[in-house]
Write a protein that binds this DNA or RNA. Structure first.
Length: 289
DNA sequence: ACCCAGGTGAGGG
DNA sequence: CCCTCACCTGGG
């Protein structure tokens, strides 16, 4: 096992991992356990930094830093968010959220699973898929699993997919995995492409609508101006900016892009966290384990 | 025993 | 465009 300390300016690890962008991290004895690529990690938050324990394939401090700060400096983003009077007020409750640099395939797959689903079950399904189709990483605290490759997912027996409680999402997951496995989705090209163009390409995929596409753009492809509108963000925006008046998700997305520009993705994370954990939620920040 | 959930896609106004 | 509806399935 390799252990090192990493300075993480402004980072609130629990908020970042519990903010709806990732589904695989769990908390145990004050440490977050998760898998990045082929590395099994244990992250212990300390003041201003964190201690990392790495097993499986090595992961350098630089690589971990790049994963944790996928869209750059948390503090710089928060300084800019403060120019919005609403965000300035909720920021004391949401400070420290970072946008991770996750593998786009994992994000696509995870948010396909998330449609019309609840978080505990999404986590259950993803964990079962990883156990059945991922590769084992032995650790001192038991076996972890990598996220299954597109190949493995596309060729998986339906029996396995069904046993993962995918429900009616089975067909779209399979079909999308097939397209990715066949190289029909060029994530690197989508990373470079303009937002609208990349979104159009993603929504061509079976089971991928606007919400899932925006999630892939923001959490997997580094498009900071993406703004996924789920029910929580919708509620928050309607309440905080529109006096409780109803707006369609599309209208909210267009509005957010206009108002926040390249900061939209960051704003979305803070609004989500606020809605879920401070405003309407009953779960608190301990959720997500 | 229900009822719901971080959406999608199809059908109709 | 917007609205409405069905939809697998395990947790609450």
């Amino acid at each position: 096992m390799r252990t090192f300390e990493l300075v993480t300016p402004g980072l609130h690890l629990r908020r970042t991992l519990g903010c709806g962008q990732t589904f695989r991290w769990t908390w145990e004895d004050g440490a977050a356990r998760g898998v990045v690529g082929r590395a099994a990690l244990r992250l212990i938050p300390l003041p201003g930094c964190l201690q990392a324990e790495v097993e499986g394939e090595p992961l350098s401090p630089e690589a971990l830093y790049a994963y944790l700060f996928g869209c750059g400096s948390v503090r710089a983003a928060e300084r800019r968010l403060c120019t919005d009077s609403v965000l300035r007020q909720i920021l004391p409750h949401t400070r420290g959220i970072s946008i991770l640099a996750q593998d786009p395939w994992e994000v696509l797959c995870s948010f396909l699973v998330s449609q019309n689903n609840n978080i505990p079950k999404i986590r259950l399904t993803i964990e079962r898929l990883c156990q059945a189709l991922g590769e084992p990483i032995p650790t001192s605290r038991g076996v972890s699993f990598t996220f299954p490759s597109p190949d493995r997912m596309a060729d998986a027996p339906v029996r396995i997919l069904r046993a993962s409680a995918l429900g009616y999402r089975t067909d779209s997951l399979r079909a999308t995995a097939r397209l990715v496995a066949d190289g029909r989705v060029d994530f690197e090209a989508l990373r470079q492409a303009p937002l609208e163009e990349a979104r159009a390409a993603l929504t061509e995929l079976p089971g991928v609508g606007e919400k899932v596409a925006e999630c892939v753009l923001l959490f997997g492809l580094g498009h900071e101006e993406a703004f996924p509108v789920d029910v929580w963000v919708r509620r928050a925006v309607e309440d905080l900016y529109f006096g409780g008046r109803s707006r369609t998700p599309r209208a909210i997305r267009a509005w957010a892009r206009e108002r926040f520009g390249s900061l939209a993705g960051w704003a979305q994370q803070h609004l989500y966290h606020f809605a879920r954990n401070c405003r309407y939620g009953t779960r608190g920040e301990a959720a997500g384990a």
